[in-house]
Amino acid sequence: MKGKEWYQTAEVAEEYEDKRFSRGGRLIDRREKEAVSSALGDLEGKKVLEIACGTGRFTAMLAARGAEVVGLDISDAMLSQGREKARVAGLSERVEFVRGDAARLPFPDGHFDAVLAMRFFHLIPNPDRYLREIRRVTDGRLVFDTFNTPSTRSIYNWLLPMGSRLYADEDVHAMLDRTGYKLADSSHDFLLPYGLYRAIPRALADGFYRIESELRATEFLGEFPSVSYWSARVS
């Protein structure tokens, strides 16, 4: 998995949200949480597994919406940040953080009503393997995101130290078919890569986003979103 060692360092965990979700990154955070909330729907009383939960950015949100959440990550340092976030929000009783490998999930078959995997599929070399393991532990919904090609992300990818796995729409449809899922819904966002938004102030990011939203509504540029959100069910 790309960046496996990098994500586990204490320094990265401590600075992760400040670097990625401050300034213009707050817009990214808001848009991602809106997409996840819409895709998962009503969570009251549901058991939800979040894979690659990191610092608990989504974990706490899911618990606040009434879910019983297990956040799984390979990084102890990230999990420590997540536990503190849940504690501060008064959600510790609804959240459990577990260190583990998403390729070998430590849960029984059909244990969860839904699984969330954000910022995950761009890091893994063999998505089918992980999808089959996720399918084992849920009979319900899977929500995940991908970085896309063709898009401006392809250019930005050259500058990243780890790079990212990029997906075309047909790649996602094919891997869902291969692993026993049926696509329920999808949405697409951001023409410009995330890195640009993180580098600029929030007010400027909001202005850029308004302009690109109009461009994404056009027939041509609407075909090149840099990120997609997918909602699938076991077929």
Results as ranks from 00 to 15, higher is better:
Thr146Asn: 08
Pro201Glu: 00
Ala13Ser: 11
Leu166Gly: 02
Leu27Asp: 02
Arg94Thr: 02
Gly56Glu: 04
Leu176Val: 06
Ile51His: 06
Glu223Lys: 14
Val227Ile: 12
Ser164Ile: 00
Ala35Met: 14
Asp42Phe: 11
Ala13Pro: 05
Arg233Trp: 11
Ser164Gly: 03
Ser75Ala: 08
Ile211Lys: 13
Gly3Pro: 09
Arg87Ala: 15
Val115Thr: 10
Ser37Lys: 04
Ala64Thr: 01
Asp29Met: 06
Arg210Lys: 15
Asp42Pro: 10
Ser75Trp: 02
Gly180Arg: 06
Leu27Gln: 01
Asn157Phe: 01
Asp29His: 11
Gly66Lys: 13
Arg23Gln: 00
Gly100Leu: 14
Leu123Ile: 04
Ala117Pro: 06
Gly24Leu: 03
Ile134Val: 13
Ala114Arg: 11
Ala86His: 15
Val48Arg: 02
Lys46Cys: 07
Ile134Tyr: 06
Ala203Asp: 09
Ala63Ser: 09
Lys182Val: 12
Arg87Lys: 15
Arg104Asp: 10
Gly41Met: 13
Gly45Leu: 07
Leu49Glu: 03
Met61Lys: 00
Ile200Ser: 03
Ser226Ile: 01
Glu170Gln: 06
Trp158Lys: 10
Thr138Leu: 08
Arg129Ser: 03
Lys33Leu: 11
Glu17Ser: 06
Glu68Lys: 12
Thr59Leu: 08
Arg233Val: 14
Lys47Glu: 05
Pro201Ser: 00
Thr218Phe: 11
Ile51Asp: 06
Ala60Arg: 07
Phe208Gly: 12
Ala77Leu: 14
Phe147Pro: 09
Lys19Ile: 12
Gly71Cys: 11
Ala52Val: 14
Thr152Met: 05
Ala232Lys: 08
Gly66Ala: 14
Arg119Trp: 14
Val36Arg: 05
Glu219Ile: 13
Glu68Met: 09
Tyr130Met: 00
Gly25Tyr: 08
Phe208Lys: 07
Asp171Thr: 05
Arg104Pro: 03
His122Phe: 15
Ser228Trp: 02
Leu192Phe: 12
Gly180Ile: 07
Arg31Gln: 08
Arg20Pro: 04
Leu166His: 08
Leu62Asn: 05
Val95Glu: 05
Val137Ile: 14
Asp169Pro: 01
Ser154Gly: 02
Leu79Phe: 07
Gly3Lys: 12
Ser187Gln: 10
Arg87Met: 06
Leu72Gln: 03
Phe190Lys: 00
Arg202Ile: 07
Ser37Phe: 04
Leu123Glu: 13
Ser187Trp: 05
Asp101His: 03
Tyr197Pro: 12
Tyr7Lys: 08
Leu79Lys: 03
Gly207Met: 08
Ala52Asp: 13
Arg216Trp: 00
Pro193His: 03
Glu32Val: 09
Gly140Ser: 02
His173Val: 11
Met61Phe: 06
Tyr229Met: 13
Ala64Leu: 01
Glu96Gly: 11
Thr149Phe: 01
Ile155Gly: 02
Asp171Ser: 04
Leu191Arg: 04
Ser80Ala: 15
Ser164Trp: 07
